[in-house]
Amino acid sequence: MEYQFIRDPITGYRVRMSQEHALVGRWLNEELAIADVKSFVEQMESIVSSQDEIRIEGREVRLILSKDEALFEAHSLYQNDVDLSRYEDDFLELDEDGLVAGCGFEDFQALMLDWQAFTQGRR
């Protein structure tokens, strides 16, 4: 998983990720508050020794975290109340690419530890 951390004087801390993991970056940038990073990393450590799963419902992105993987799903993936057939004449369709992303637990844990170090000025 490729990522780049950015310290922007206007928007604050940001992460830029590859297209394949853009939803992960969106979750970090928009859903997880910088103040909550430390407690989230601690919560992740408890998953390693248990069979538990963490589900975090964000405003726009859901995270399902188990000891094997981190799965990110955009809520718009499940919007069934929109009648897409009315857009058929315009050749528009729901593009599911970018609405789901996943990675292994170890990769996600490394990202979160790097993010924690960066946002706390240790990197």
Rank of each mutant, 00 (worst) to 15 (best):
A101Y: 01
Q120N: 06
D90I: 05
I64P: 05
F118S: 03
D95K: 00
S85A: 03
E20R: 08
I54T: 03
Q120M: 07
E31K: 02
V37R: 07
Q43P: 04
G58W: 02
D36T: 11
Y13N: 13
L94V: 13
G12P: 11
Q79V: 15
D83A: 00
I64L: 11
I64K: 03
E2T: 03
R55P: 07
I47H: 01
N80T: 15
S18N: 12
T119E: 00
D52E: 07
C103E: 03
L77M: 12
K38G: 03
V41F: 04
G12N: 04
M112N: 00
T11L: 14
E2I: 08
E31Q: 07
A33L: 09
L99W: 01
H75I: 04
Y78M: 10
M17T: 09
V100W: 05
V41N: 06
I10V: 15
E57D: 06
S66M: 14
W115C: 06
Y87N: 03
L94N: 15
D97S: 14
R59G: 14
A33H: 12
I64F: 13
Q19V: 11
W115D: 04
D90N: 10
D68N: 07
M112D: 00
L111H: 01
Y78T: 02
F5A: 00
R14C: 12
D81M: 15
E53L: 09
H75M: 06
I54M: 05
L65G: 03
E88K: 12
N29P: 02
F91A: 13
Y13P: 06
E106K: 02
D83N: 11
M112C: 03
W115G: 10
M1W: 08
L113K: 01
V100E: 09
Q109C: 04
V82M: 15
I10T: 10
V61Y: 09
D8W: 00
A35C: 08
